Computed example of a mutant assay.
Amino acid sequence: MNLIENISQNWEELPVNYEDLEHLALEVPRKPGIYQILTNVPKELFVQFGSRTDKKHYNLEKKIRESDKLPEEFKILQQGSNKYIVYTGHSYNLRQRFKEHFKGSKGTGCLALFQIEKLRSFQWDFQFNELGKYDGYFDSKLQRTFLEQKYRAEIGWPILCSQ
C-alpha cells in the first residue's frame, strides 16, 4: 500500500465540541501530518460569515466564493444534512493546527470556527493522519503539501479551501 492509500484509509477521528475543546486537543499529537475537518453545517450558513474582526481569521464567504469557481464534479458537496469534508490541510504540529482552526490564533491564518457562536451547535470531526508513522516518510513542508494536494485531487475540493 502506498502512502496516499494509507492516508486515505487510516484517519484518526476525533469528534469535536466547544465545551471540551481544550481536553480534546490533548488527543491530537504534536507531530507532522495531514488533517481534514468535517461538519454538518450547510454551505449556505457558512456564506453568512464574511469579514472577521481579526484579519488572520479566514473570511469563510470568500473561501466559498473561490471554491465555487470549480466545476461541481471537482467539489465535495454536502449530501442532505450529513457531515462532509469542508477543509483539508497539513501541519508540522497537528495539535497546534487543531486549536487554531477551532479556537483561533493571533499568529497565523486559520478558520477559528468556534469564535462564531452559531457554528458551535453543529457536529464537527477532526480527522488526522500522523505521517511519521509511515515507513520512509521524512517530514518536509513540500512533501506534506504534495500529499495533501494529491489527496484533495482524489476526494474532491472542500468548500473552505481556496488554494
Score class of each variant (00 low, 15 high):
residue 130 E to Q: 13
residue 130 E to N: 08
residue 61 E to G: 04
residue 153 A to P: 00
residue 88 T to S: 03
residue 4 I to E: 02
residue 147 L to M: 13
residue 30 R to H: 08
residue 148 E to F: 07
residue 70 L to V: 05
residue 97 R to W: 02
residue 153 A to I: 01
residue 113 L to A: 14
residue 97 R to D: 08
residue 147 L to K: 08
residue 154 E to F: 02
residue 26 L to P: 05
residue 155 I to M: 03
residue 63 K to M: 07
residue 133 K to D: 10
residue 87 Y to R: 15
residue 122 F to L: 11
residue 18 Y to W: 13
residue 89 G to W: 06
residue 143 Q to V: 09
residue 64 I to W: 02
residue 157 W to P: 00
residue 1 M to P: 06
residue 33 G to P: 10
residue 152 R to L: 10
residue 67 S to E: 05
residue 60 L to E: 10
residue 140 S to C: 11
residue 149 Q to P: 05
residue 74 F to V: 12
residue 24 L to P: 08
residue 79 Q to K: 15
residue 145 T to Q: 15
residue 90 H to Y: 03
residue 46 F to G: 15
residue 29 P to M: 04
residue 1 M to K: 11
residue 76 I to M: 10
residue 118 K to N: 11
residue 132 G to F: 00
residue 121 S to W: 01
residue 22 E to D: 15
residue 59 N to E: 05
residue 113 L to P: 15
residue 104 G to R: 02
residue 35 Y to W: 12
residue 122 F to Q: 15
residue 31 K to V: 02
residue 22 E to P: 12
residue 153 A to Q: 08
residue 81 S to C: 04
residue 70 L to G: 05
residue 18 Y to G: 06
residue 38 L to A: 11
residue 51 S to E: 13
residue 85 I to H: 07
residue 25 A to E: 02
residue 112 A to M: 02
residue 162 S to A: 14
residue 112 A to E: 04
residue 112 A to I: 01
residue 125 D to G: 05
residue 83 K to A: 09
residue 8 S to I: 03
residue 35 Y to D: 15
residue 61 E to R: 12
residue 120 R to A: 07
residue 107 G to R: 13
residue 126 F to Q: 10
residue 82 N to H: 11
residue 3 L to P: 05
residue 111 L to C: 10
residue 34 I to E: 01
residue 53 T to K: 14
residue 69 K to N: 13
residue 94 L to H: 03
residue 139 D to K: 11
residue 29 P to Y: 03
residue 11 W to G: 12
residue 155 I to H: 05
residue 149 Q to I: 06
residue 100 E to Y: 02
residue 103 K to E: 12
residue 42 P to T: 10
residue 118 K to Q: 13
residue 151 Y to N: 04
residue 35 Y to S: 15
residue 51 S to C: 08
residue 63 K to F: 04
residue 67 S to I: 01
residue 146 F to G: 07
residue 153 A to R: 08
residue 75 K to L: 10
residue 27 E to A: 10
residue 53 T to Y: 07
residue 119 L to S: 12
residue 20 D to K: 12
residue 28 V to M: 00
residue 77 L to K: 15
residue 160 L to D: 02
residue 54 D to Y: 04
residue 54 D to A: 03
residue 129 N to T: 02
residue 59 N to K: 07
residue 39 T to K: 09
residue 127 Q to M: 10
residue 100 E to R: 01
residue 13 E to F: 01
residue 122 F to C: 14
residue 128 F to Y: 15
residue 144 R to P: 03
residue 135 D to K: 14
residue 77 L to N: 14
residue 20 D to C: 09
residue 23 H to C: 09
residue 21 L to E: 03
residue 57 H to C: 05
residue 96 Q to R: 13
residue 133 K to V: 09
residue 80 G to A: 04
residue 42 P to W: 02
residue 74 F to Y: 12
residue 97 R to K: 15
residue 107 G to I: 03
residue 66 E to Y: 05
residue 74 F to H: 13
residue 142 L to R: 15
residue 52 R to V: 06
residue 117 E to Y: 09
residue 131 L to C: 14
residue 147 L to P: 08
residue 133 K to Y: 06
residue 101 H to S: 00
residue 149 Q to A: 14
residue 125 D to P: 05
residue 129 N to Y: 01
residue 134 Y to I: 06
residue 15 P to L: 04
residue 94 L to D: 01
residue 143 Q to E: 14
residue 52 R to F: 04
residue 92 Y to M: 10
residue 126 F to N: 07
residue 13 E to H: 07
residue 63 K to I: 02
residue 124 W to E: 11
residue 137 Y to C: 08
residue 56 K to M: 09
residue 99 K to W: 03
residue 8 S to E: 11
residue 142 L to V: 13
